[in-house]
Design a protein around this nucleic acid. Structure first.
Lengths: 124, 124
DNA sequence: TGTACTGTAATAAAAATTAATACAGTTAAA
DNA sequence: TTTAACTGTATTAATTTTTATTACAGTACA
Protein backbone atom coordinates (compact mmCIF):
# COMPACT_ATOMS: atom_id res chain seq x y z
CA UNK A 1 0.00 0.00 0.00
CA UNK A 2 2.93 2.32 0.65
CA UNK A 3 4.22 1.55 -2.82
CA UNK A 4 0.85 2.26 -4.40
CA UNK A 5 0.62 5.48 -2.44
CA UNK A 6 3.98 6.62 -3.76
CA UNK A 7 2.95 6.10 -7.37
CA UNK A 8 -0.78 6.87 -7.33
CA UNK A 9 -1.02 7.46 -11.07
CA UNK A 10 0.58 4.19 -12.13
CA UNK A 11 -0.83 0.73 -12.60
CA UNK A 12 1.68 -1.42 -10.74
CA UNK A 13 1.84 -5.09 -11.65
CA UNK A 14 1.69 -7.89 -9.11
CA UNK A 15 5.16 -8.86 -10.28
CA UNK A 16 6.63 -5.47 -9.39
CA UNK A 17 4.88 -5.45 -6.02
CA UNK A 18 6.03 -9.00 -5.34
CA UNK A 19 9.61 -8.04 -6.04
CA UNK A 20 9.41 -5.25 -3.47
CA UNK A 21 8.01 -7.62 -0.85
CA UNK A 22 10.19 -10.46 -2.08
CA UNK A 23 7.27 -12.87 -2.14
CA UNK A 24 5.41 -14.73 -4.85
CA UNK A 25 3.27 -12.70 -7.25
CA UNK A 26 0.30 -15.04 -6.77
CA UNK A 27 0.20 -14.17 -3.08
CA UNK A 28 0.12 -10.52 -4.03
CA UNK A 29 -2.77 -11.09 -6.39
CA UNK A 30 -4.68 -12.88 -3.65
CA UNK A 31 -4.22 -9.95 -1.30
CA UNK A 32 -5.24 -7.61 -4.09
CA UNK A 33 -8.62 -9.34 -4.07
CA UNK A 34 -8.95 -8.58 -0.35
CA UNK A 35 -8.02 -4.93 -0.68
CA UNK A 36 -10.33 -4.54 -3.66
CA UNK A 37 -13.21 -5.93 -1.62
CA UNK A 38 -12.81 -2.92 0.66
CA UNK A 39 -12.51 -0.51 -2.28
CA UNK A 40 -9.06 0.61 -1.23
CA UNK A 41 -7.54 -0.30 -4.57
CA UNK A 42 -8.69 -0.96 -8.11
CA UNK A 43 -7.18 -3.26 -10.70
CA UNK A 44 -6.96 -3.38 -14.44
CA UNK A 45 -6.58 -6.57 -16.42
CA UNK A 46 -4.69 -7.01 -19.65
CA UNK A 47 -1.46 -5.59 -20.96
CA UNK A 48 -0.14 -2.59 -19.00
CA UNK A 49 -2.64 -3.51 -16.31
CA UNK A 50 -1.99 -3.71 -12.60
CA UNK A 51 -3.33 -2.08 -9.46
CA UNK A 52 -3.50 1.40 -8.00
CA UNK A 53 -5.22 3.15 -5.11
CA UNK A 54 -8.92 3.65 -5.57
CA UNK A 55 -8.97 6.79 -3.45
CA UNK A 56 -6.58 9.37 -2.08
CA UNK A 57 -4.04 8.08 0.42
CA UNK A 58 -5.23 10.98 2.58
CA UNK A 59 -8.57 9.23 2.93
CA UNK A 60 -7.16 5.82 3.75
CA UNK A 61 -6.44 5.14 7.39
CA UNK A 62 -4.05 2.39 8.38
CA UNK A 63 -6.98 0.93 10.30
CA UNK A 64 -8.88 0.48 7.03
CA UNK A 65 -6.06 -1.63 5.64
CA UNK A 66 -5.67 -3.54 8.87
CA UNK A 67 -9.33 -4.44 9.11
CA UNK A 68 -9.38 -5.87 5.62
CA UNK A 69 -6.15 -7.80 5.93
CA UNK A 70 -7.01 -9.23 9.30
CA UNK A 71 -10.38 -10.41 8.01
CA UNK A 72 -12.84 -11.80 10.49
CA UNK A 73 -10.26 -13.57 12.64
CA UNK A 74 -8.86 -11.99 15.77
CA UNK A 75 -5.21 -10.97 15.84
CA UNK A 76 -4.68 -13.27 18.80
CA UNK A 77 -6.10 -16.71 18.23
CA UNK A 78 -7.16 -19.82 20.03
CA UNK A 79 -5.20 -23.00 20.31
CA UNK A 80 -6.06 -25.17 17.34
CA UNK A 81 -6.93 -27.92 19.82
CA UNK A 82 -10.31 -27.84 21.48
CA UNK A 83 -9.89 -27.25 25.21
CA UNK A 84 -11.25 -30.01 27.44
CA UNK A 85 -15.02 -29.48 27.86
CA UNK A 86 -14.94 -31.59 31.02
CA UNK A 87 -12.69 -29.01 32.68
CA UNK A 88 -14.16 -26.07 34.52
CA UNK A 89 -11.73 -23.76 32.72
CA UNK A 90 -11.54 -25.55 29.37
CA UNK A 91 -15.32 -25.41 29.10
CA UNK A 92 -15.44 -21.62 29.16
CA UNK A 93 -11.99 -20.42 28.19
CA UNK A 94 -12.65 -19.71 24.52
CA UNK A 95 -15.77 -17.72 25.26
CA UNK A 96 -13.93 -15.70 27.88
CA UNK A 97 -10.95 -15.15 25.63
CA UNK A 98 -13.13 -14.04 22.72
CA UNK A 99 -14.22 -11.04 24.68
CA UNK A 100 -10.64 -10.07 25.44
CA UNK A 101 -9.53 -10.64 21.88
CA UNK A 102 -12.26 -8.45 20.49
CA UNK A 103 -11.25 -5.70 22.87
CA UNK A 104 -7.65 -6.04 21.76
CA UNK A 105 -8.58 -5.84 18.10
CA UNK A 106 -10.58 -2.71 18.79
CA UNK A 107 -7.71 -1.05 20.56
CA UNK A 108 -5.40 -1.82 17.65
CA UNK A 109 -7.91 -0.37 15.24
CA UNK A 110 -8.24 2.77 17.33
CA UNK A 111 -4.50 3.14 17.34
CA UNK A 112 -4.25 2.73 13.58
CA UNK A 113 -7.01 5.25 12.99
CA UNK A 114 -4.50 7.86 14.04
CA UNK A 115 -2.44 7.52 10.89
CA UNK A 116 -3.34 7.88 7.22
CA UNK A 117 -1.62 6.06 4.40
CA UNK A 118 -0.52 9.49 3.17
CA UNK A 119 1.32 10.13 6.43
CA UNK A 120 2.83 6.67 6.37
CA UNK A 121 3.88 7.05 2.73
CA UNK A 122 5.79 10.20 3.58
CA UNK A 123 8.19 8.20 5.68
CA UNK A 124 9.71 6.63 2.55
CA UNK B 1 -3.28 -19.27 34.60
CA UNK B 2 -7.03 -19.28 35.14
CA UNK B 3 -6.78 -22.85 36.33
CA UNK B 4 -3.96 -22.00 38.75
CA UNK B 5 -5.95 -19.04 40.01
CA UNK B 6 -8.95 -21.25 40.74
CA UNK B 7 -6.87 -23.64 42.85
CA UNK B 8 -4.23 -21.37 44.40
CA UNK B 9 -3.34 -23.78 47.20
CA UNK B 10 -2.71 -26.80 45.00
CA UNK B 11 0.33 -27.91 43.08
CA UNK B 12 -1.09 -28.72 39.65
CA UNK B 13 0.90 -31.05 37.43
CA UNK B 14 1.79 -30.30 33.84
CA UNK B 15 -0.23 -33.36 32.91
CA UNK B 16 -3.41 -31.98 34.49
CA UNK B 17 -2.88 -28.58 32.89
CA UNK B 18 -2.16 -30.19 29.52
CA UNK B 19 -5.41 -32.12 29.71
CA UNK B 20 -7.36 -28.91 30.26
CA UNK B 21 -5.69 -27.27 27.26
CA UNK B 22 -5.68 -30.52 25.33
CA UNK B 23 -2.04 -30.10 24.36
CA UNK B 24 1.16 -31.96 25.12
CA UNK B 25 2.48 -31.77 28.69
CA UNK B 26 5.97 -30.92 27.46
CA UNK B 27 4.64 -27.74 25.88
CA UNK B 28 3.08 -26.84 29.19
CA UNK B 29 6.37 -27.37 30.99
CA UNK B 30 8.12 -25.11 28.51
CA UNK B 31 5.63 -22.34 29.13
CA UNK B 32 5.99 -22.91 32.86
CA UNK B 33 9.63 -21.90 32.45
CA UNK B 34 8.53 -18.64 30.84
CA UNK B 35 5.97 -17.80 33.51
CA UNK B 36 8.46 -18.66 36.25
CA UNK B 37 10.98 -16.27 34.75
CA UNK B 38 8.52 -13.48 35.50
CA UNK B 39 7.80 -14.79 39.00
CA UNK B 40 4.13 -15.29 38.24
CA UNK B 41 4.24 -18.95 39.20
CA UNK B 42 6.44 -21.28 41.19
CA UNK B 43 7.08 -24.96 40.67
CA UNK B 44 7.96 -27.94 42.81
CA UNK B 45 9.78 -30.99 41.52
CA UNK B 46 9.28 -34.54 42.65
CA UNK B 47 6.26 -36.55 43.68
CA UNK B 48 3.16 -34.46 44.31
CA UNK B 49 4.96 -31.57 42.69
CA UNK B 50 3.55 -29.21 40.10
CA UNK B 51 3.02 -25.49 39.74
CA UNK B 52 0.98 -22.83 41.47
CA UNK B 53 0.72 -19.04 41.47
CA UNK B 54 3.61 -17.29 43.13
CA UNK B 55 1.47 -14.34 44.20
CA UNK B 56 -2.15 -13.44 44.63
CA UNK B 57 -4.24 -13.41 41.46
CA UNK B 58 -5.30 -9.95 42.61
CA UNK B 59 -1.78 -8.73 41.99
CA UNK B 60 -1.39 -10.30 38.58
CA UNK B 61 -2.60 -8.25 35.64
CA UNK B 62 -3.41 -9.91 32.35
CA UNK B 63 -0.78 -7.61 30.87
CA UNK B 64 1.87 -9.27 33.06
CA UNK B 65 1.02 -12.63 31.57
CA UNK B 66 0.81 -11.25 28.06
CA UNK B 67 4.20 -9.59 28.25
CA UNK B 68 5.90 -12.79 29.33
CA UNK B 69 4.17 -15.03 26.84
CA UNK B 70 4.72 -12.69 23.93
CA UNK B 71 8.41 -12.44 24.74
CA UNK B 72 10.48 -9.90 22.86
CA UNK B 73 8.69 -10.35 19.55
CA UNK B 74 5.91 -8.08 18.44
CA UNK B 75 2.38 -9.45 18.17
CA UNK B 76 2.35 -8.50 14.50
CA UNK B 77 5.41 -9.63 12.66
CA UNK B 78 7.40 -9.08 9.51
CA UNK B 79 7.33 -11.23 6.47
CA UNK B 80 9.95 -13.91 6.88
CA UNK B 81 11.36 -12.81 3.55
CA UNK B 82 13.65 -9.80 3.48
CA UNK B 83 12.01 -7.00 1.52
CA UNK B 84 13.91 -5.83 -1.52
CA UNK B 85 16.61 -3.36 -0.39
CA UNK B 86 16.79 -1.98 -3.92
CA UNK B 87 13.19 -0.79 -3.60
CA UNK B 88 12.37 2.61 -2.15
CA UNK B 89 9.71 1.02 0.03
CA UNK B 90 11.37 -2.33 0.71
CA UNK B 91 14.45 -0.54 1.96
CA UNK B 92 12.60 1.19 4.78
CA UNK B 93 9.44 -0.78 5.37
CA UNK B 94 10.60 -2.87 8.30
CA UNK B 95 11.94 0.12 10.16
CA UNK B 96 8.70 1.99 9.59
CA UNK B 97 6.59 -0.97 10.59
CA UNK B 98 8.58 -1.55 13.77
CA UNK B 99 7.42 1.75 15.11
CA UNK B 100 3.78 0.88 14.42
CA UNK B 101 4.13 -2.60 15.88
CA UNK B 102 5.62 -1.29 19.08
CA UNK B 103 2.74 1.13 19.41
CA UNK B 104 0.27 -1.68 18.87
CA UNK B 105 1.91 -3.84 21.51
CA UNK B 106 1.75 -0.97 23.95
CA UNK B 107 -1.90 -0.42 23.35
CA UNK B 108 -2.62 -4.10 23.91
CA UNK B 109 -0.68 -4.00 27.14
CA UNK B 110 -2.57 -0.93 28.29
CA UNK B 111 -5.83 -2.69 27.56
CA UNK B 112 -4.80 -5.79 29.48
CA UNK B 113 -3.69 -3.74 32.45
CA UNK B 114 -7.35 -3.12 33.08
CA UNK B 115 -8.04 -6.66 34.22
CA UNK B 116 -6.50 -8.78 36.96
CA UNK B 117 -6.22 -12.54 36.87
CA UNK B 118 -8.57 -12.56 39.87
CA UNK B 119 -11.26 -10.80 37.86
CA UNK B 120 -10.70 -13.10 34.93
CA UNK B 121 -10.78 -16.18 37.13
CA UNK B 122 -14.18 -15.18 38.46
CA UNK B 123 -15.67 -15.70 35.01
CA UNK B 124 -15.29 -19.46 35.35
C1' DT C 1 -2.45 -11.68 -33.23
C1' DG C 2 1.14 -11.71 -29.88
C1' DT C 3 2.35 -9.99 -25.40
C1' DA C 4 1.60 -8.72 -20.73
C1' DC C 5 -1.33 -8.54 -17.53
C1' DT C 6 -5.32 -10.27 -13.69
C1' DG C 7 -7.80 -13.92 -11.43
C1' DT C 8 -8.02 -18.27 -9.60
C1' DA C 9 -7.27 -23.18 -8.74
C1' DA C 10 -4.47 -26.96 -7.71
C1' DT C 11 -0.40 -28.90 -6.13
C1' DA C 12 4.31 -28.91 -4.16
C1' DA C 13 7.73 -27.26 -1.10
C1' DA C 14 9.24 -25.10 2.94
C1' DA C 15 8.71 -23.46 7.48
C1' DA C 16 6.72 -23.37 11.85
C1' DT C 17 4.29 -25.56 15.38
C1' DT C 18 3.07 -29.34 18.14
C1' DA C 19 3.64 -34.01 19.70
C1' DA C 20 6.23 -37.82 21.15
C1' DT C 21 9.99 -40.05 23.25
C1' DA C 22 13.60 -40.25 26.33
C1' DC C 23 15.97 -39.56 30.37
C1' DA C 24 18.44 -37.22 34.32
C1' DG C 25 17.26 -35.14 38.56
C1' DT C 26 13.96 -34.35 42.64
C1' DT C 27 10.73 -35.39 46.30
C1' DA C 28 7.27 -37.90 48.92
C1' DA C 29 5.65 -41.73 50.73
C1' DA C 30 4.99 -46.83 51.03
C1' DT D 1 15.33 -47.54 50.91
C1' DT D 2 13.04 -48.20 47.05
C1' DT D 3 9.29 -47.02 44.07
C1' DA D 4 6.22 -43.74 42.02
C1' DA D 5 5.18 -39.27 40.40
C1' DC D 6 6.77 -35.30 39.36
C1' DT D 7 9.94 -31.20 36.80
C1' DG D 8 13.23 -29.83 33.37
C1' DT D 9 15.17 -30.25 29.10
C1' DA D 10 16.85 -32.18 24.73
C1' DT D 11 16.06 -34.49 20.50
C1' DT D 12 13.43 -36.19 16.88
C1' DA D 13 9.04 -37.09 14.46
C1' DA D 14 4.57 -35.75 12.92
C1' DT D 15 1.39 -32.41 11.75
C1' DT D 16 -0.24 -28.09 10.31
C1' DT D 17 0.28 -23.80 8.22
C1' DT D 18 2.32 -20.85 5.10
C1' DT D 19 4.43 -19.82 0.90
C1' DA D 20 5.87 -20.98 -3.73
C1' DT D 21 5.14 -22.96 -8.07
C1' DT D 22 2.72 -24.27 -12.04
C1' DA D 23 -0.99 -23.90 -14.95
C1' DC D 24 -4.38 -21.79 -17.51
C1' DA D 25 -8.63 -19.09 -18.77
C1' DG D 26 -9.86 -14.37 -19.51
C1' DT D 27 -8.74 -9.37 -20.72
C1' DA D 28 -6.67 -5.39 -22.94
C1' DC D 29 -3.30 -3.06 -25.47
C1' DA D 30 -0.31 -2.31 -29.51
Amino acid sequence: MALLALYPEEWLSSKIIASSLNINAVLVRKEIAVLKSGDLIESKEGKNGGVRLHKSAKKIYLSDIFKLVKGKDNVLSFSSNEPNPACRVGKKINKNLTSIMNTIDSSIINELKKQTLEEFKNKF
